[in-house]
């Protein structure tokens, strides 16, 4: 049931995704702030399908050269392509403190045992500025294979970016900067190079009191 209703292709399903800041309170406790978060969902067949977005509307927000979003989509499979609009929660006090930990955690599951590679490209005006590549092995748990990228440290570029964003006095200014800031995550089977998931992330700043929010869309070409 999750196919078409959550971030899942026929080969791999995203279970959870979060970018966070951990600040030590005292020697034993941490305060964890979630900038963005996609929690566990358990869609059923009665749930509606995700809305779709024509991928051509966002091509220029992501790398367009060889191996860019268009090439990836043309290669397929099309059911692996998603757009996530995040309303990031920036309601946190940031100080330059080396005891702070900025991290990203994500989890995936599959019915297949494989090695996955996750490439995360941060883009400014559609051009890649930094890329992180991670390789993860599967763990067999409860009848399926689970992949965990646990507490991957956020890169310097992203930490600086968040700090600079926080220093802007008005939310509309932050959103104006975020209009040209995107992230493209591509998860592939390391051995076959098959695209398992391709997720295009775009951002605004949350105005909610309930923290980070998001919408998920299927990317299609009508």
């Amino acid at each position: 049931p999750w196919q078409g209703r959550s971030i899942a292709s026929s080969r791999l399903r995203m279970l959870e995704f979060s970018a966070f800041l951990e600040q030590p309170q005292d020697s034993e406790t941490f305060n964890k702030h979630l900038f963005v978060h996609i929690g566990q969902s358990n869609p059923s067949y009665s749930d509606a399908y995700l809305e779709s977005v024509d991928i051509r509307q966002i091509y220029d927000k992501f790398p367009e050269k060889k191996g860019g979003l268009k090439d990836l989509f043309d290669k397929g499979p099309h059911n692996a392509f998603f757009l996530v609009k995040f309303w990031a929660d920036l309601s946190v006090n940031l100080q330059d403190d080396s005891s702070f930990f900025y991290g990203v955690s994500s989890q995936y599951e599959s019915s297949e045992n494989m090695i996955i590679t996750s490439s995360t490209k941060v883009c400014s005006f559609g051009k890649q500025v930094v890329e992180k590549v991670e390789t993860e092995f599967a763990r067999f748990e409860n009848g399926r294979y689970v992949f965990r990228i646990h507490r991957s440290p956020l890169c310097e570029y992203m930490i600086n970016f968040i700090h600079k964003l926080k220093h802007l006095p008005e939310k509309y200014m932050m959103n104006s900067v975020l209009e040209n800031f995107t992230i493209l995550q591509v998860v592939t089977n390391k051995d076959t190079l098959e695209t398992l998931l391709c997720i295009a992330y775009v951002f605004e700043v949350s105005t909610s009191e309930h923290g980070a929010q998001h919408h998920i869309y299927r990317l299609v070409k009508d």
């Binding site: 809305e51 977005v53 024509d54 051509r56 509307q57 966002i58 091509y59 220029d60 367009e64 609009k85 309303w87 209009e179 775009v202 605004e204 949350s206 105005t207 909610s208 309930h210 923290g211 929010q213 998001h214 919408h215 869309y217």
Partner: peptide, 24 residues
């Protein structure tokens, strides 16, 4: 590309793209 410089607000995106969910 053809969409270069077109503000996101002027693109063909679902209405929900501009509606922040209010769920907790």
């Amino acid at each position: 590309g053809v969409m270069d410089q077109v503000p996101m607000r002027k693109r063909q995106l679902p209405a929900s793209f501009w509606e922040e969910p209010r769920l907790t």
